[in-house]
Write a protein that binds this DNA or RNA. Sequence first.
DNA 1: GTCCGCATGTAACTTGTTACATGATTTA
DNA 2: TAAATCATGTAACAAGTTACATGCGGAC
Lengths: 181, 181
Amino acid sequence: MALEHAILVSLDERSGSGYELARRFEKSIGFFWAATHQQIYRTLKRMVELGWVTGHEVAQDGRPDKKVYEVADAGRAELARWLASPGEPETIRHDLSVKVRGASLGDPAALVDEVARHRDLHAERLDVYLAVEKKDFPDPSALSGRRLHQHLVLRGGIRAERALVEWCDEVLVALREDDRR
Amino acid sequence: MALEHAILVSLDERSGSGYELARRFEKSIGFFWAATHQQIYRTLKRMVELGWVTGHEVAQDGRPDKKVYEVADAGRAELARWLASPGEPETIRHDLSVKVRGASLGDPAALVDEVARHRDLHAERLDVYLAVEKKDFPDPSALSGRRLHQHLVLRGGIRAERALVEWCDEVLVALREDDRR
DNA sequence: GTCCGCATGTAACTTGTTACATGATTTA
DNA sequence: TAAATCATGTAACAAGTTACATGCGGAC
């Protein structure tokens, strides 16, 4: 399991509450690891029990109190252990591919629309990633340490989204061509 | 959920037993949708109850009996409905990215090894896909219908694995460069 | 005689999803 | 005054993983 580890990485970059973590999982960290607030609260609770993080309540004025979590030594040790341990490549579950493979069993035009929709969604994500890169990493060759690692992960996102956009385009051309016959 | 739908697509291409499906999910279909035999047996059971597939026992000599499943009309209708319905792009969960992002907290050399391992795994997969393409789809421009759709999905796998290999290479160069300083 | 392939399953557990619940403050 | 943001959670359910269980036939 890596949600714990994703949280540890995020908390190590900056301590924060469950709510703040949930927000990060909607962007930065969320670009490569998805999680909802329910999962995060549940997991943080377990991580406190395991001694991987410590939480303390912080009073705020004009806002509800929050619990801010920090990585404990045991958490850092667990992260180091996990980083060095071999993991399997991700198990793939790609809905859209299932749909394309089953195309003959449904309405061709509807499938084309669906692929086009995904194409646009991926193109949007790609634009977001490219904008982040331009803004936050204007001189990539000068990076080192944490900043370098963050940039490398972003590069992965850019490559993945670009590949998906190009694949959708290839599929669209082929499906439309096939329909015309 | 799309396991049902992946099974429907696979059974539509050819009827088969739970065991046979499990094998297909280790290759062809498994290239874009992972599932274990336990999931498949469980799901087939539910699909029979839903009337999406029908199963009948087939006696074999020298081998255990098997239950062969076929897609029913209700199953084909469900597939058509699902194909036309909009779906979300996949939620990403990429372990290796979490590890790269947390690189500063562990042993740099161990991470390099881990990335290199993944690079080789993805390169192997890529080779498999390219071999399948060469063997099964020697003349892609002549394809239509089912065969075209199968080829398009394979193209997606090729693009994805290629992107991953290239990303791993980029990460390796950058991490090794960073270590040297 | 031991391991591999064929063939089907149960049980226990961990993860992930969806819906619901509460309540204060700020913004439109 | 209605909606959005901040903030934390419970409960029920769906899906995925891991371990265990059984038994025949053929290959080595």
